[in-house]
């Protein structure tokens, strides 16, 4: 009997207008210590959480975007971004920040995978626990 479960964190909200993106990220970081099988999903307005060059000084709020780039250090290696959500918002993969992790050969490889909606639905279906905020 294994205590390892497949955890998916679903992010559907844009950052900064509400605290959900930041406090969800805090759960992911803490959760990393539990050595579960963790994936992150970004869809709908959640794709805006991964946009490059977020500059928050103008709104007087701490910029937590760099934390996403450190996810690899927390052994979070599976980040799925929904293609249709990007396209509906006029975005492409090039607009997203680079998030990498070290593979078994100690090479930096991308943690981000762009998936279509049907694949996203399968990824969701394959989980044991889905946390959405």
């Amino acid at each position: 009997m294994s205590d390892t479960k497949r955890f998916l964190y679903v992010n559907r909200k844009a950052p900064h207008g509400t605290i959900y993106a930041l406090e969800s990220l805090e759960v992911v970081l803490i959760g990393a210590a539990f050595e579960q099988d963790v994936s992150l999903a970004f869809l709908d307005d959640g794709v805006f959480q991964l946009i490059k060059k977020q500059a928050t000084t103008g709104i007087g709020v701490k910029n937590f975007a760099p934390v996403y780039r450190a996810l690899g250090d927390y052994d979070v290696k599976k980040i799925f971004v929904e293609r249709e959500s990007l396209e509906e918002r006029g975005l492409s993969e090039d607009d997203l920040m680079e998030i990498t992790h070290e593979n078994d050969d100690e090479e930096d490889v991308s943690s981000v995978e762009i998936v279509d909606r049907a694949r996203m639905a399968e990824i969701m279906a394959a989980q044991d626990v889905i946390l959405s905020f």
């Binding site: 205590d3 479960k5 955890f7 805090e26 759960v27 803490i30 959760g31 210590a33 539990f34 579960q36 626990v129 946390l131």
Partner: peptide
């Protein structure tokens, strides 16, 4: 702590 949330999921 937040670990209690993860533990609840497990």
């Amino acid at each position: 702590g937040l670990g209690q949330l993860i533990e609840s999921g497990i």
